[in-house]
Simulated assay, not measured.
Amino acid sequence: MKQQSLKFLHVSTLLAFILIPLGGLTTDIYIPSLPSMAQGLGVSMRSVQVTLLLFMISSGISQLFIGSILDSFGRYRINVAALITFSIASFVIATIPNIQVIYAMRIVQGITVSLIIVGKRAFFVDMYRGEQLKHYTSLFSIVWATAPIVAPFIGGYLETHFGWRSNFYLLGSLTALVLFFELRYTGETLQTSRAFKRADIAEVYRMMLGTRDFTLGLLIIGFSYSLLVVYGMVSPFIIEKKYGLSPLVSGYSSLASGIALMSGGIISKILINKPLLFKIVPATVILLLLVAGMVLTTAYTENIWILVGFTLPLHVISGFVFNNVYAYCLQRFTQSAGTASGLTGGGIYVISSVVGYGLINLFNIRSAHSFAYINLIIALLMAAAVAVFVNVKKVKQ
């Protein structure tokens, strides 16, 4: 097995950071194309939204179990196989415009993305310790936020000039390029493998999920990410269908959303040494106030500026809370880095996709006002999780 060389550690670290946003890139790049994709495939709006849901559910569920596989069999060979499969699936979606085939390939992409990003998050725990590890994990959500910043802007441009299929051609080409550098510069980083024994693995999962602050942390980051998921799913239809604006405007709005998310992560990084509760409690209160203001304002008037004007500060707060609690969960069980990484990443996707898609189907979202009510429900759920998390942490102290 090819072993990780310290000589190329910095290159491997850069490649890991490039691949961590792959999940977001795979969803956000074609968000501006959702309306035209539905039209081109001859299916409903809800049918193309399912392509997002299938990816998130398959990625989330597989991440819950993939960590133990990576802790037993290593990272490198699994990562290489996943990159090859993901690239092929992207080209299949682009060349076979059939909704059923796309559904199947999105599930394949969800599973392979899980293998890639869980392994890359575990890479940092494998190779770094102490303050270095804390520094890198605090950068995760900032780096991850590059996808919602860059992807919709690129996707909107590609949609306008080349059509929705070009998004998937680009995904396939980019992962093939990264694969070349992975083969050249990276290797196995797992130092000590765990025997793949189902009883032992089940005990590790029981221990982690039985740790209340960890499971509450998963709920908090899942709810915070739900705010972005819902916006990504419904904003193109509000902006393009209700307001009559172009896919480029959808792309720009998602670009602004991504910048807001990253800004929250950067603020979190600046305040890295402040106590966790000192940061997330005031942030949750501000989130509730913003959502309440959005509900009241959109009851009387709405337009693109009101929609984006409330969404951006909401996503700043979301990114801030996400970054703090995400880093906390990843560092909670360093002795089982792959499993903890998988549970954390999988929990985000499962919770956010179930909450987001469930609320979208429960409410007929065709305006900023109905969208505001969805945000209010998510904010209340998140506030309840934060309140219990605070009590658990105070008892532990």
Rank of each mutant, 00 (worst) to 15 (best):
Arg194Met: 13
Leu139Phe: 06
Leu312Pro: 03
Ile360Glu: 07
Ile61Leu: 15
Ala368Gln: 03
Phe91Thr: 02
Leu227Gln: 02
Ser318Pro: 03
Pro282Phe: 00
Ala195Glu: 14
Leu158Pro: 08
Ala260Pro: 06
Ile239Lys: 04
Tyr157Ala: 08
Met208Ala: 08
Arg165Thr: 12
Leu170Gln: 05
Lys279Gly: 00
Ser253Ala: 03
Val395Arg: 15
Glu203Ala: 15
Ala151Leu: 06
Ile238Leu: 07
Thr192Trp: 13
Phe17Ile: 02
Leu209Lys: 01
Lys2Gln: 10
Thr175Ala: 09
Ile88Tyr: 10
Ser341Asn: 08
His135Ala: 12
Glu203Pro: 05
Met105His: 03
Thr160Gln: 14
Thr339Phe: 09
Lys269Met: 10
Arg366Gly: 15
Val390Thr: 05
Ser246Phe: 02
Leu170Arg: 03
Ile221Phe: 07
Leu381Trp: 02
Gln397Ser: 15
Pro236Asn: 01
Leu261Gln: 09
Val395Asn: 13
Ile142Ala: 07
Phe363Ile: 05
Val118Trp: 12
Gly119Leu: 03
Thr26Asp: 14
Leu312Thr: 03
Ser33Trp: 08
Ile18Trp: 11
Ala202Arg: 11
Arg77Val: 03
Gln100Glu: 15
Ala379His: 06
Ile29Gly: 13
Met45Asp: 12
Leu380Val: 10
Phe8Pro: 00
Thr186Asp: 07
Thr146Glu: 12
Leu287Ser: 07
His135Leu: 14
Gly24Glu: 06
Ser12Ala: 15
Leu53Asn: 11
Leu34Ala: 10
Arg77Tyr: 04
Gln63Ala: 09
Ile201Ala: 09
Ser193Arg: 13
Ala379Glu: 03
Phe214Leu: 00
Val150Thr: 15
Met1Arg: 15
Val150Trp: 11
Ile365Pro: 14
Val316Tyr: 01
Lys2His: 07
Phe91Ile: 03
Gly24Pro: 14
Ser246Ile: 00
Ile360Gln: 07
Gly319Cys: 01
Val229Phe: 09
Ser253Lys: 08
Ile93Arg: 04
Leu287Thr: 06
Leu261Ser: 10
Val229Asn: 05
Leu312Val: 01
Gly24Asn: 11
Leu287Asn: 08
Leu15Gly: 08
Gln3Thr: 07
Ala387Met: 08
Ser341Glu: 10
Gly319Tyr: 07
His135Pro: 15
Val50Thr: 14
Leu227Pro: 00
Ile29Asn: 10
Gln109Lys: 04
Val178Thr: 13
Pro282Asp: 02
Thr51Gln: 11
Val150Met: 12
Leu271Phe: 05
Ala104His: 04
Leu228Glu: 05
Phe237Asp: 04
Thr51Asn: 10
Leu83Cys: 05
Ala327Cys: 04
Phe214Pro: 05
Leu190Cys: 08
Phe363Ser: 13
Val291Leu: 01
Val350Pro: 03
Leu261Phe: 12
Lys394Cys: 06
Ile18Tyr: 13
Ala176Asp: 13
Leu171Gly: 06
Ser166Cys: 08
Leu209Cys: 04
Ile99Trp: 14
Ser193Met: 15
Ile238Trp: 00
Arg46Ala: 15
Ile29Ala: 08
Gly251His: 04
Ser367Ala: 05
